[in-house]
Design a protein around this nucleic acid. Structure first.
Lengths: 114, 114, 114, 114
DNA sequence: GTGGTCTAGACCACC
DNA sequence: GTGGTCTAGACCACA
């Protein structure tokens, strides 16, 4: 796995799980790897993976069964989508638009590039 | 001046100068405030301002006349625009598009929101 | 470690690392000391060492693994050599030659002294 | 007049006078411009020029006749040459040689480039 | 443990 | 007056 410098690894890991849920790759009830196993497989300290799982748990994306492991939550996809769409329209899109405006990039150019 | 937590102050200062150049508020040859003066005016340590100026110098946005101060470079606007537009089309826009796709947001929705 | 007055310490530190890479003393992948450790060992403030490391990072000589430390980059030696040789032939040597000429020192004298 | 960043302007000015003496352009007894006049002609603060003249006076290259101006000293050329040659052989040349060695540049390459 | 950022204050060279 | 460098010490995010 490759990481973007400048963004904390634990955030990138958490996000990758969200993306895989959205993509349908992971479904409610699926078990995800243990922090140790997953850390080893991507070359990251288990502590860092644990931090990602903690974050995902707080977001309600996964839940823990003590002694067994972590699992995708029932309504993971729904809650991720809701959060993400809200943030997208309220934060990312306006920021994107403002940036384009500052750079003198017309909406037409953007539409074409998309 | 208000600062976004989570982003280093020195980067925000540097960026604000770039924005002001792009907006035409600052022009080639204009002198910008001394590190002491500007630091005092925005409530930031002069060292931090100096770090911003150092960065802007490396980017070719400003240049120094020793013992006198810093000035907006001749082709500041051009170089900022070039860099920023490149980054916009090569990084920000694709990232934005991919994100929208992942969230199941159609191009139509985006165009309307813009 | 002894420092030449008149030259910023952080530059001398950076340069000493470059020299050690060129000399083969440091190789790609080698970890260099932490800013605290190295600062203590040479009697310099950790901030100053950090500034050296920042510079070396910009030059592509070292890279950072967050939370772990700094390491010699894969092609550190190559990039240092390339830069240094260019500067040598384009700047240092012509300057040296011109100086000798101005002082009326023949090439023969130089060759002998070398 | 163009100045090399990184080297104090007053040193560059002083040096340019030495060079012109060595080149025979300025001779013993010649009057050099007043600090005010010269400063204006090269776009430098008179204080800075004064500092150059002070340095040259200390080096015995020029002397001052109060109320009249500065003049090239009788044995200016001789003293400059002596000093410069000494420094050349004792400092510049060894430094140059060491640098070439570190970069793996053979004496043959240097001789050819010269 | 690691480095990153910021502050406060000092001293210096230069203009 | 200007910026450049350095120190000391603090707090923080990250692994």
């Amino acid at each position: 796995m490759e990481f973007d410098e400048n963004i904390p690894i634990y955030l990138q890991i958490a996000r990758s799980f969200c993306d895989r849920v959205l993509a349908g790759e992971l479904k409610a009830g699926d078990r995800i790897p243990s922090v140790r196993e997953y850390g080893a497989s991507i070359g990251v300290n288990p502590n860092t993976v644990a931090r990602s799982y903690e974050r995902l748990t707080n977001l309600g994306v996964i839940y823990q069964q003590r002694g067994i492991g972590f699992f995708i939550a029932e309504d993971a996809k729904k809650s991720i989508l809701k959060d993400a769409r809200e943030r997208f329209f309220n934060e990312e899109l306006p920021k994107f638009a403002e940036r384009a405006k500052l750079l003198g990039i017309s909406q037409k150019e953007i539409t074409e590039a998309l």
